[in-house]
C-alpha cells in the first residue's frame, strides 16, 4: 500500500508538471534531435540572426517597466534568467541586445508563475504557513528554473522561445561582459546533468524535492516541510528504481546535484547584483527584484 501511495504521488506531480510547464523535456529533446520534421527551430548565432529571430517569431507582449521600449519580445524558454536591461543611447545592435535581455526577464517572470502553480499542486504545500510558502518559493524558484533549463540545452546551445528558437552557446559567449558570463555556468551544469538522463516524470519529483527544502533561511515551521519532502524523496527513490533499474546510485547522484545548484544560484544572484551596481539605468522586473532582494 505504501508503494502504491508513492506511485500515486508521482503520477499526480507528473500530471501537474505537464499541466504547468509548456515545454517538456520529451518535446525539447525531439526538437534538438531534429525529430520534429519541418518545424526545426530558427537558429540565432549572431546579431544579424538575433534581429531576424525577433521578426521570425510571433510572440506575446509582456509589459513590465514603464519605460520599456515597446518592441516585439522574444519569449525565452524556461531559462530566461539573465535579468537585466540597460538604458538609452545605444546603437541598433545594442538595442537588439537589450531587447533580448528584457525578454529574458519577462519570460523569467512568467516561468516563476508556472513554478508557483506547480508548487501549489504539491500535496500539503498550500497548507503550510503562508510566510513559509513565500520563503520556499523565494529560495527555490531560481534553482528550479536552472534545472528546467537543462533539457533545453546541449553542448552547442539552448532552445528558447518555447522551443521555436535555438541560440548558440558561442553567440551567448560573444555578448559583452558581464552578459557573456551569465549562461556559461548553466551550460556546464546542464551538460553534466543531462548525462543522468532523467525523463519528465523524474523531473517532476526532483523539482518538488527542491521546492520542499527545509533548510531555507527564515522558515518558521520546518517540521511539516521536512515531512512533505521526505514523502516526495521516497517517491523519487522508488521512481528512479523503477524507471532506471540499470542506473546505479542515480538517486544519490541526483541529490548531489542540489549542492552544485545552490552555488550556481549564488553566483547568478551576485552577477545580477553586480549588474545593478555597475550598469546605468538597469531595471529588474519587480517580481525578480522581490525574489533576489536579500537572497544570498
Amino acid at each position: 500500500p505504501e508503494a502504491a501511495d508513492l506511485r500515486a504521488l508521482s503520477r499526480h506531480l507528473y500530471e501537474a508538471y505537464l499541466k504547468y510547464f509548456p515545454l517538456t523535456k520529451a518535446k525539447a529533446r525531439a526538437i534538438l534531435s531534429g525529430k520534429t520534421g519541418d518545424n526545426a527551430p530558427f537558429v540565432i548565432h549572431d546579431m544579424k540572426s538575433l534581429m531576424e529571430g525577433e521578426q521570425f517569431i510571433n510572440c506575446k507582449q509582456i509589459p513590465t517597466q514603464e519605460h520599456q521600449p515597446q518592441t516585439s519580445a522574444l519569449s525565452v524558454g524556461h531559462g530566461g534568467l539573465m535579468g537585466a536591461h540597460l538604458g538609452s543611447e545605444c546603437n541598433i545592435l545594442d538595442a537588439v541586445e537589450l531587447r533580448f535581455f528584457h525578454s529574458c526577464q519577462s519570460r523569467s517572470a512568467e516561468a516563476v508563475r508556472e513554478v508557483t502553480e506547480f508548487a501549489k499542486s504539491i500535496p500539503g504545500f498550500i497548507n503550510l504557513d503562508l510566510n513559509d510558502q513565500v520563503t520556499l518559493l523565494k529560495y527555490g524558484v531560481i534553482e528550479v528554473l536552472i534545472i528546467m533549463m537543462a533539457p533545453l540545452m546541449n553542448k552547442d546551445g539552448t532552445l528558447i522561445a518555447y522551443g521555436q528558437i535555438f541560440m548558440t552557446r558561442e553567440f551567448l559567449k560573444s555578448l559583452r561582459k558581464p552578459f557573456c558570463q551569465m549562461m556559461e555556468p548553466k551550460f556546464e551544469f546542464s551538460v553534466k546533468f543531462n548525462t543522468l538522463e532523467l525523463d519528465d516524470s523524474d523531473m517532476a519529483l526532483f523539482l518538488a524535492v527542491i521546492i520542499l527544502s527545509g533548510d531555507r533561511p527564515g522558515l518558521l515551521n520546518v517540521k511539516p516541510i521536512e515531512q512533505l519532502q521526505e514523502t516526495v524523496l521516497h517517491a523519487l527513490e522508488l521512481q528512479l528504481k523503477l524507471n532506471h533499474p540499470d542506473s546505479l546510485q542515480l538517486f544519490a547522484k541526483l541529490l548531489q546535484k542540489m549542492t552544485d545548484l545552490r552555488q550556481i544560484v549564488t553566483d547568478h544572484v551576485h552577477l545580477i547584483q553586480l549588474l545593478k551596481k555597475t550598469e546605468v539605468d538597469m531595471c529588474l522586473h519587480p517580481l525578480l527584484q522581490e525574489i533576489m532582494k536579500d537572497l544570498y
Binding site: E110, V112, R113, K138, H285, L287, E290
Partner: peptide, 21 residues
C-alpha cells in the same frame, strides 16, 4: 515576509496572468 514579497504572495493566493505580472 509576505509584505516584502507582494507579487509572490499574490501568485500564491491566486493565479495571476502574465500581463498582471
Amino acid at each position: 515576509l509576505k509584505e516584502k514579497h507582494k507579487i509572490l504572495h499574490r501568485l500564491l493566493q491566486n493565479s495571476t496572468s502574465p500581463v498582471e505580472l
